[in-house]
Write a protein that binds this DNA or RNA. Structure first.
Lengths: 302, 302
DNA sequence: CGCCGTGTTGCAATATGAGCAACACCACCG
DNA sequence: CGGTGGTGTTGCTCATATTGCAACACGGCG
């Protein structure tokens, strides 16, 4: 759009840190870009960039401006989405930041189900740990985030909170697979495929370990649930995952809830940036996920 | 600002309903304006105006666009205000919509106190009944509203709620002035200067009258508290006002709380448009009023 | 010092936008 | 029925703003 052109330029320069680089990306010349920014600064009455020999860096006012620009652009997208919705066809783009736990089953399934009804809506899925997922939402990079125990942040507004037990993941023929639920200390009798420290589940395990003060035999540690899953399929090890992240396909893995006395339930949170309204597409996607999670796991929701 | 020019044009045309009228206001020609709007509609991919023989009217998409434009303009003001605040000087403009009850003492006093600290902040005060005050906030015409018992509206977000007793207003030498509090039925023994039906207080009185099922001798009715005050100063009549609207100057009027058994407390609400953030200036003004009301009447606040 | 990186400026080419006048349409009214 | 005054729109012309090119100024670095 015409009236957002300058804003896009500023955003680009701010993120690339160089007028010449941005000029190329925007297919403009450096001189045109320089003048756009100068004009904007004149209109605003304040410089928003510091000119360094290494390039351009935003100053304090510039940070505010950038935040404003991001909001404007995202608002405009929402407007387009709302307008498209008027004519019956849902159109738009939804960016979700999700914890890795959902990358396997839940999110792809939800997106497929949504797109079956609204094929003109496209999706971006950012897989991030809980800290970066919340940060992505705050930086307007994602519309919503679905994460486990997000760090408390004032700008993150939970839309749905569900409490889920942590599960122990093991092969079908594992001795512990016989019972419906397992005790944490029994799991620790076996070698463990441990989620990496960037994963939220790790923190839960860590505090449970501290409480239980039991030794743990970690044979594999990985930031990737995919790795942990594959490995758990091979050796007689135990790994961990929340209920909603359990693979549904016909693998030879089974999940057993860990007794709630040993492990408090994890918090599964779907949230957005506080004080912002979502595009129609995003909003309806949130509704769908909420409904779907509620109907599957709703008995323990809060 | 340059990039908001088109948006301002659209807003103006939407509110005037005529390209030619707007062209004059904006010191443009009708043709230029027409093309601006056509270009915008082309970029957007949808018409936003219905062309009638009587002029231009927004269609459904246009209503969304207008809402968006208002938000953009108001956001930009906030940005300027935040930037000005960076350099230490607070600058900006605050528009408040207030019930008439506060037009006399509270609001002018608060503004004066604020401007003593921040002389570069200017104010607009819209005096509106509760319905229109809330509407003004929703239409981005006012940043905040201070009203009595606002109608429930989802887009109006209360920031502060204080419960205040209704007072009977009378001259110093009135027989009822001897006691600290008065009973409602005693007030009705005297002629009444009655607030008009557009005033929120009237509704309170009305329901109390229905409960008490007592006859009332209304000798003057007015939409203006100023009229009611002046008249109450002359004849031995009773009028009504909430505590925060009682004139503090050295008139010969006194206020006596009505016994709470006869009259439930009124709600005094300071609120803003839900989901929007205020400019620094407005936000600090809200803080000041909150503090001031709390310290004066805070014992009964909720 | 010479080189390469940065952003900036002068000037000419160009695209964008504005104004004017004429047009098409509709409502109203004699 | 046809005029009259209102609406928005369009073709054309011209001013203005925006762009690109090339040259410049400054700072870091070898």
């Amino acid at each position: 759009m015409k009236h957002l052109k300058t804003l896009r330029c500023i955003e680009d320069v701010a993120s690339s840190g160089s007028i010449r680089k941005s000029a190329e990306q925007l297919s403009l010349t450096a001189s045109a870009l320089t003048r756009k920014i100068q004009d904007f600064e004149t209109e605003l009455g304040t410089p928003i960039f510091e000119r360094m020999p290494q390039g351009m860096r935003l100053n304090a006012a510039g940070e505010l401006v950038l935040r404003h620009i991001r909001a404007q652009l995202s608002d405009f997208e929402r407007l387009r989405s709302q307008i498209a919705d008027l004519s019956g066809v849902r159109r738009g783009h939804v960016t979700v930041a999700v914890s890795q736990a959902f990358a396997h089953g839940l999110i792809p399934k939800e997106i497929a189900s949504y797109r079956a009804r609204h094929p003109l809506v496209s999706f971006s899925v950012l897989v991030r740990d809980h800290v970066h997922a919340v940060r992505a939402v705050a930086a307007f990079e994602a519309d919503v985030a679905l994460v486990i125990t997000p760090p408390p942040a004032p700008e993150f507004e939970p839309l749905l909170v569900i409490h889920q037990p942590l599960c122990a993941l093991m092969s079908k023929d594992h001795p512990l697979a016989k019972a419906e639920t397992v005790r944490f200390r029994d799991c620790l009798q076996y070698p463990i495929a441990m989620p990496g420290p960037s994963l939220a589940i790790r923190h839960h395990l860590q505090s449970a370990l501290v409480r239980a003060s039991l030794p743990v035999n970690t044979v594999v540690e990985s930031d990737s649930f995919e790795v942990l899953r594959s490995y758990t399929g091979g050796e007689q090890v135990i790994s961990f995952q929340i209920r909603a992240g359990i693979p549904q396909d016909n693998s030879n893995l089974v999940a057993r809830e860990i007794d709630h006395r040993d492990m408090p339930p994890t918090q599964l949170v779907l949230g957005q940036l506080r004080g912002r309204s979502l595009s129609v597409a995003a909003s309806k996607f949130v509704d769908q996920i909420s409904g779907s999670l509620h109907s599957q796991y709703g008995v323990r929701s809060a």
